[in-house]
Structures are given as structure tokens and as C-alpha cells.
Computed example of a mutant assay.
Amino acid sequence: MVKLLLKALVVSLVIHGAMAAKEPSKKPRYYFPETINGFGYKFDEEGKLRNIETGEGFHFVVKEGSHEYNQLHYEALGEVITKYVYKLLETECMLRRIPVPADAEEDEPQSFVFISEDAMLNTEKLLVLIHGSGVVRAGQWARRLIINDNLKSGTQVPFIQRAVKNGYGVLVMNTNDNVRVVDGQMVKIRESENPERHADHVWNNYIMKAKAKHIAIIAHSYGGVVTTNLFANHEKEFVDRVFAVAMTDSVHFINKSGPYKNLVNVARNWVTSKSLLDTPLQTVPGDIPHYSAGVGQHEMTSWASFKSIFKFLDVMYKKATRSEEMQKPSDRKEL
């Protein structure tokens, strides 16, 4: 009897050992394409994402009854689109990548920002673009708009192209790019551990070293928090050089007792509202003035305010340069 039990135990151990040996290592349950075409889509001439075969727009449901698969499929498509937008910045906007941290070693995890060829050398104007929080990366306002609406409304490409046309050097931040996978582990990127650290490093190592006398900022959603943090950390330099800050549905909070008056004086925040575009709205005392973006959708506020933003930048730039001229000593000789 004992022998039988021992034999059964040995057989059981052998079977379980064999099963354990055959158990696959933990790998992703699903594999997705690495290109937009691989997902069966392409962007048409109007920048709309279309099914290659049917011409229809994006459909979230790929597998009926499997929300997990559909969500992962959507996220994987979004990652591919991020790379596609990076490529647009390089090919359509003629921007190039520079490293974050600025002194990155070749083998260490690093992020990057995009700059125009004249960003560091343009002596007159520099425009800084700051996206919001979440999955968006440099060049994007909203992934959902890129996928479900079009590239114009969802990306920063039209803003960059208009800025270049208007004589600006351009710098595009990448504040959500904070980690890399190293040997299977998530490792934070030095000087880009979070959006505020990223922006602070870019300010110190690139923006403040740029030759532009006049700097403008366009910031969406959490980008407004990043901007107010920059002001708090670099108030003197900010006041000296930043002539305009255009926010779109910013989620910042300004303490009325803080030293934000100089920021408020050069800023405007286009927020979600059913009122007509540019309608002045009630604003908490001491905060950045609110104006209607003319839309009720948070993600759409940047694109909806596009023309108004650049009109605002023009007005503020003229105001800054007039003030600069007035402060110059007169060249006339005393009679």
C-alpha cells in the first residue's frame, strides 16, 4: 500500500513537473501591427483616418464581446499614430529632435523635444507648444481627435506651420514621455520624470539659451499647469521674455496671493463654452481671463481657437515691441 502511494506521488510529481515545464512564459496575449496600414487604415488627403478597404472611419469594436481586446487594439493603434505624428513633425514641419536630458549619455534612457532649424538662432520670436496629460506626446493635442476626427484638429501641425509662416522659431515639448523599458523594467528618464521636470529642464537648457527676445507659449489642458509652474520657478526670465501665453481649457490653479499678476497680464484661456468664440466669460478674480472656445468638447478647444490664438499672439507681440521701442533712449540730440 505504501509502495502504491509512493508510486502515485512520484507519478503526480512527474506529471506536474512536466506541465510546469510546458507552461509558457508570461507574454502579451495579443500582438498588433506596427504600422497604420497594418491595422487596415490610412489617412486620406483631408487627414481623416479611413479603412483602406471600405473607406469608412475608425471602428472601435474589432471583436464583438471582447472589450479588453478592443481597448488594447485602440491603444496599440494610438502608439503607432504617435510615431506617425513624430514623422509628420520631421517631414511636414521640418523639425528635428534634440535630447532630454540635454547632457544625455549615449546608453542612458532619454526623451526628446522637437525644434525648428532656427529655434535657437531666431533673434526675434520663439513659440513653445505644450500638450496636456495622458497618452499624448509631442505634436498631439488629442489622440481621440486624430483617430476619430482628423489630423488638423488633433495635432499641433497647423499651429507649427502657421508659426513658421509668421516668423517664429518653434519648440515642441514632450512632457508625458517619462519612462523607458530597460531589461524588462520601467526606468524613469532623468530630468523628465514628470511633466513639470521635463519642462523645467527644457526651459533651463534650451529655451533660455535661445536667442529670441520674445517668447510665446500655447498650452492645452494640463499644459497650463506646466506653464504656471514654469512661471513660478523662473519668474524673472519669464516676465522679461514671455510676451503671450495662450491656453486652451487649462486646468491650472492660481493662488490669488501668489505672484502671478505678470502672467495674468499676458495670458488668455479659451475654455469650453456654448457661447460664441472669443466671448469674454466670468473669471475667478486673480485668474487668467477666460474666453469662449465656442465648443463644448475639451479636446477640441485648441483647434476651435486656432485663428483667435494667432490673432492674440499678433496683438501681444505688437504691444511688446511697441513697449520695447518706447523704452529705448531717444537718439535725438538736445538743441
Rank of each mutant, 00 (worst) to 15 (best):
E196M: 11
H198R: 05
V157H: 08
H198Y: 14
R144C: 00
I189C: 08
D200L: 10
L171F: 04
L171Q: 02
M173D: 03
M173P: 01
L151K: 12
I160D: 09
R143S: 01
R197C: 14
D149S: 08
W141E: 03
E191S: 08
P195Q: 05
L151E: 13
S192F: 04
Q156M: 05
A142T: 00
V170L: 09
I147N: 00
Y168V: 10
S153Y: 08
V172E: 08
R143F: 04
Q156T: 03
N194D: 15
N204V: 06
G169S: 02
A163R: 11
Q161A: 08
M173I: 09
N194Y: 10
K165E: 14
Y168M: 05
V182W: 13
K165V: 12
E193K: 14
R180E: 15
N176R: 14
V157N: 06
Q185A: 04
S192G: 12
S153C: 02
R197H: 11
I189T: 02
T175R: 01
Q185C: 07
G184C: 07
V187P: 04
I160C: 10
D149I: 04
D149K: 10
R143H: 09
I146Q: 01
R143Q: 05
P195N: 04
Q161E: 12
R143W: 01
K188Y: 03
H201E: 11
E191Y: 00
M173K: 09
W203Q: 10
E196R: 03
W141A: 00
R144M: 08
R180G: 08
V179P: 10
V179M: 15
R180F: 09
P158L: 03
V202G: 06
Q185R: 01
N205H: 15
Q185D: 13
Q185L: 06
A199D: 08
D177N: 04
R197D: 15
R162F: 10
R180P: 00
A199P: 08
Q185S: 05
N150P: 10
N166P: 00
Q185H: 06
V181W: 09
F159G: 03
S153K: 12
D183G: 02
K188S: 12
N205S: 15
N148L: 09
N176I: 05
E193R: 13
S153M: 03
R180T: 02
V170H: 12
Y168I: 13
L145Q: 05
G154A: 06
R180I: 07
G184I: 13
V182G: 11
A199L: 07
R143C: 03
E191W: 01
G167W: 13
G184A: 12
F159T: 10
V157E: 10
V170T: 11
D177V: 06
V179A: 13
R162M: 05
E191I: 01
L171T: 00
V179F: 15
R144W: 02
D200R: 09
N204D: 05
V202M: 07
L171K: 00
M173Q: 09
H198Q: 07
V202Q: 01
A199I: 15
F159Y: 11
E191L: 07
L171W: 01
H201C: 13
N194V: 09
G154H: 02
N166E: 09
D200T: 15
V181I: 15
V164M: 13
R143E: 02
E193W: 08
V182L: 02
V172D: 05
M173S: 07
N166V: 10
N204L: 12
A199Y: 05
D177P: 00
D200I: 12
G184K: 04
L145H: 12
T155S: 01
A199W: 02
V170Q: 13
N204E: 03
W203H: 06
V157A: 09
